[in-house]
Design a protein around this nucleic acid. Sequence first.
DNA 1: TTTGGCATGTAAGCCGTTACATGATTTA
DNA 2: TAAATCATGTAACGGCTTACATGCCAAA
Lengths: 181, 181
Amino acid sequence: MAQKSVLRYIILGLLAQQDLAGCDIKKMFEGELGDFWHSNHSQIYPELRKMETDGLIEYHTVLVGKKQEKKVYTLTAAGEELVSDWLHKPLNPLLPTRDEFTMKLFLLNDRESPLVRKLFREEIARHEEKCLYLQNRWQLLFHNEAEQAQHYGHACILKHAIEREQDRLKWLKTEYASLTQ
Amino acid sequence: MAQKSVLRYIILGLLAQQDLAGCDIKKMFEGELGDFWHSNHSQIYPELRKMETDGLIEYHTVLVGKKQEKKVYTLTAAGEELVSDWLHKPLNPLLPTRDEFTMKLFLLNDRESPLVRKLFREEIARHEEKCLYLQNRWQLLFHNEAEQAQHYGHACILKHAIEREQDRLKWLKTEYASLTQ
DNA sequence: TTTGGCATGTAAGCCGTTACATGATTTA
DNA sequence: TAAATCATGTAACGGCTTACATGCCAAA
């Protein structure tokens, strides 16, 4: 119940590209994937266990140093099938945005309130920060076209995220300007 | 833990505008608010109880028919203060999008795959549907300017939601076109 | 040799969904 | 009078976060 375990499919999808240990998955959520999805290690490790119990993945241990072991997981045939099924399945219905700015604006509901102007300034600031951050990542990862072609999906969603931030900023600034005149 | 209870603040914010019973709040989530936030009645009623225990709200019973009672809640001074604090508090950091389309695109990662084209078509379809729905709601609620002025916050976020859908559709169609050429 | 990071794991507790449940009321 | 809706509630359970915890390793 609650929300369907999308995390399971994402881990399977990552493992379909390459074998990974729990900490590798953790690092992906902290790095390249972090703008789009996130999970803590305290959720990742139990999920890996469950998936192994369910026969979707297997692991072999690899030594780090002389004693420390890491478990590197590989998809089984059943796991490959499940992730393929998920990728073929239609997208679920769109969820409500659940955005804090949106809700505050709805609740304030007063064009003249100084709080509304403050809210817009905050929202503009945090999206400008995010926009810059994403643009830096684009420069870092995809400044040459070969990289873009090789990591099509990643390049695509990053480009999209940047455009979304820019569109949002444009709207925010237009609306803010109309407030202060 | 988990997520901070934004629901609590939203209920307080709604009650700051007018007194409401649990089922009224439920109806708001099913109607005008549903595009931006949602909660089930099985979460609303216990939350109202807790808020009453915490002294944030009070209720008086109103008869519906001859026997059935509904509890109409009112903000206390403490409740007013808490919702005001929340509205004054800076916005929380932006969360990862956790969007299914985005994750599938990231995981497929192959420009030539027919699955990617299918994914784009699905995403275009569901956003076109949503866009039309929102435009109809705008027509219904805000076709005259008096309504827009009176419900500034609502009009604002609805207008914004429509623009966001349009921007997203524009991007999706451009990208899809570049895929199929 | 100490400090920070690597790699893995468990426990407590709130959030949110689905399902179960009841009595009253309106409507066809 | 039967069916749908109103109004309120409880129970079970998975998702997700925060915090607690351990042993090993590399670098300063």
